[in-house]
């Protein structure tokens, strides 16, 4: 098969681009340590979340010095916590979010960041984020979940260390 010289050059460039793209993602995962959603979260029964040791009382749990776990339930059409009261985490901490759904598939997006995951009934999504400056972030559902999907929102509050207190954690 005859391949034109210019086409060979183009082919080589294309392969280089492809390998380069895979390499940047690999570097991001291994080198820069960007955590992605996998299967570590395990499974839950969406019908009996109230009997779950953590989702039974969703909210922020302290797990170590400057380390927290946040359990969030997404349901038509609110986040708990998140909607009626904000998700609260202290500044300068490492936070692992555990997100699941009590009914249909939802999205969990901290607006303007890459903290973004699907909430699938029966599955627990976990993402670990580094929290620095105090501030307030918007929270929204980015997967269509029913007729009032557009009303499903909330907020995530990064509380200054000085104002952080025990009433903000469940345990």
């Amino acid at each position: 098969m005859e391949i034109h010289k210019y086409e060979k050059v183009w082919l080589a460039g294309a392969l280089l681009l492809i390998v380069g793209l895979i390499a940047t993602v690999s570097y991001g995962a291994v080198g820069a340590g960007i955590e992605m959603v996998g299967d570590e979260g395990g499974q839950v029964d969406p019908a009996s979340l109230d009997e779950h040791p953590k989702f039974g009382e969703p909210g922020t749990y302290q797990t170590g010095e400057d380390e927290y776990d946040v359990y969030v339930i997404a349901q038509q059409f609110s986040f708990e916590p998140g909607t009626s009261e904000p998700i609260r985490v202290p500044a300068d901490s490492t936070v692992t979010l555990h997100v699941t759904s009590a009914d249909v598939i939802h999205g969990f997006e901290v607006v303007g960041t890459n903290a973004n995951t699907m909430a699938v009934p029966g599955q627990v999504a976990t993402i670990t984020i580094e929290v620095d400056e105090p501030g307030e972030y918007g929270l929204l559902c980015n997967e269509y979940c029913g007729s009032a999907h557009h009303a499903m929102e909330g907020s995530l509050e990064v509380v200054p260390q000085s104002e952080w207190n025990e009433s903000m954690v469940v345990n």
Binding site: G107, E109, V111, G138, L140, N142, H149, H150
Partner: peptide, 15 residues
């Protein structure tokens, strides 16, 4: 900017 797809009213109260 984080504006979601598949949403009738991408206007929110909190942010």
């Amino acid at each position: 900017l984080g504006i979601p797809r598949r949403t009738a009213e991408p206007q929110y109260q909190n942010f």
